[in-house]
Design a protein around this nucleic acid. Structure first.
Lengths: 334, 334
DNA sequence: CTGTTAGCGCGTTCAT
DNA sequence: ATGAACGCGCTAACAG
């Protein structure tokens, strides 16, 4: 591998000049620039990014924390982030936190050790205080799917309340009045917000919220199945079931079908997130689009602008509006 | 951030000694080791991994190329690779090649520029020659889901022929004799191997391969749907449909159902890969487990041993055997 | 067992 | 506009 020194010799200039044409900083005469470019080309010169990092105190790498690399929820977001940043010559180190506080902290420490210039975090388990503390260090931190008042500008998140509202409203608009709800774990902010939206839709329609028609799950498929069975057990008939995410909707649908219930003829189901497999379900799931990939896009661009001083491409949105995705699992009722 | 120099001063030793205790290389007396450790602790010292890389000519990072970050196929593999390597203190740079030759080359160049110590590649579009050339550079290269004779030891792949055989054999064992097949794109090695397996199963059972009952798809869902329609159009009845991957199986199932065909009562379907959503399909898809996460695990351990000189944990397998996953989409016929 | 010294490849003053 | 020289933080000989 040719070094900058060899290039400078080949071009008959100093090594500082080579550095200048690489970075396009200071002004260099066209003649010498051409000489240098030619030498670089002939030697097949590639800058050593590690040496660049050491000298410039910039690693040109950004850390990305997600809950899990597999699963349907993060794929598009990771993809977007990787795409945007790599096109800018930055590299992305992806880590998984598995929704566990210690593992999230470990992952973040790891990224810090790697001297990431910025961190894009989908952190579910660590506290607000930890994140605030982190943001005071010398890395830029942006948060996905989470809002902390003190660093609001660094947060990109969905209007979960609106999403919850839209999901239940869709059922109401289809004529349903007995609507059950399987919630996410209520210690999570997004779960409680979605539930609030659910309640608002009910009350706007003059339907009284019935605690017996609500169960709390953990966002996993099996809890959707169990949730459905629990709801049936209380013996309060319902014609529509709104779930706080698609996994639980899938579990509930499977459980219902195993009981001989026809979907959507006898039971309408609405999910939340619109993950990849939502359209593979049978019937195809009516759900709420959670624009997580847009958040990833915004987060990546934010980093480009604020950390790498790229020029602003567009105004930033911090709050993203979910919307209803109509498919086949919700049916009109008379 | 404290540097190694500050630690050495605080501990009253030379900076080389600090380096030694960090790397555990040469022997250091317990007393001085303790002094150093104590100083590191008090200063909250963290080695600068970039400086380490520059000095040691090791980046401690390995590049991973997959076709796409989203989608169901790579999730578990990425997850395994990340997990294994991060636990060893290495970091993974994930890039996407989108099954496109130029994009794959770009991604690989990017990883090379980043001075990765090793490359784990799921490359679909670049040529064998390109990969062979690459392997002669100063990075270790390992291939997933691809076999190149000249670098066989660096290849981890599924026995696709066996997989194709098992899929069709399952249908035959269930009593089917008219079996249609939707293949993957035949310019891809895995697709042709699976097809060969299909044919072998047929011939072993004394069933003549009927070209009219075979269509070529591109591994995507819509091509599964179209493939089903094309198969029906030739007017040769079949009771089972084997698809070269789960996406196409899903598409075919949807298309069939839209025609009023009951699955599996009127049509049995078998997939391939056992991607995440296979069990979310209705009916749950009977398919072939493609042990891609095991390959990822092997690849990661291989890198640890051969590049980072970790001690061997177990013997390596290069060839992985797929197996049948029985669910609900394949039904016995009398 | 420990200290000295010379790079690793590049960015960045400060002169010229 | 260009060159010389220093420093980024660390590893790896080489001495002692």
């Amino acid at each position: 591998m040719a070094t900058i020194y060899e290039v400078s010799k080949a071009a008959g200039v100093s090594l500082a000049t080579v550095s200048r044409v690489m970075n396009g900083n200071a002004r260099v005469s066209d003649r010498t620039r051409d000489k240098v470019l030619k030498a670089m080309d002939e030697l097949g010169y590639k800058p050593n990014s590690i040496a660049q990092s050491l000298a410039s105190n910039r690693s040109n790498s950004v850390g990305l924390l997600v809950s899990a690399l597999h699963g349907s929820f993060f794929g598009n977001m990771m993809s977007t982030v990787e795409d945007v940043l790599r096109n800018a010559g930055k590299h992305v180190i992806i880590t998984a936190g598995h929704s566990d506080e210690q593992q999230e902290k470990d992952a973040i420490e790891f990224l810090l050790d790697r001297r990431c210039d910025a961190l894009i975090l989908h952190a579910e388990a660590v506290s607000d205080e930890y994140l605030l503390e982190l943001s005071k260090r010398d890395v830029e931190v942006v948060l996905i799917n989470r809002r902390i008042e003190e660093m609001a500008e660094h947060c990109f998140y969905t209007d979960n309340e609106l999403g919850g509202y839209l999901a239940t409203k869709a059922a109401i608009d289809a004529g349903h009045t007995s609507i059950a709800y399987i919630s996410g774990p209520l210690f999570k902010q997004d779960a409680t917000e979605r539930l609030q939206g659910h309640k608002r839709a009910l009350s706007e329609a003059g339907i009284k919220f019935n605690p017996q028609l609500m169960v709390e799950g953990g966002f996993h498929e099996d809890e959707g199945a169990q949730g459905y069975l629990d709801l049936v057990a209380v013996n309060q008939p319902f014609t529509a079931l709104v779930c706080a995410n698609d996994e639980m909707a899938s579990g509930a649908m499977t459980a219902a079908r195993e009981q001989g219930v026809l979907i959507p003829e006898q039971l309408s189901v609405v999910g939340f997130d619109d993950v990849l497999f939502a359209r593979y379900l049978y019937p195809k799931l009516t759900t709420i689009d959670n624009p997580i990939q847009k958040m990833g896009n915004e987060a990546a661009h934010w980093v480009l602008e604020h950390v790498y001083k790229q020029k602003k491409t567009s105004a930033h949105t911090n709050l993203f509006a979910p919307k209803l995705v109509v498919r086949d699992s919700l049916m009109e009722i008379k």
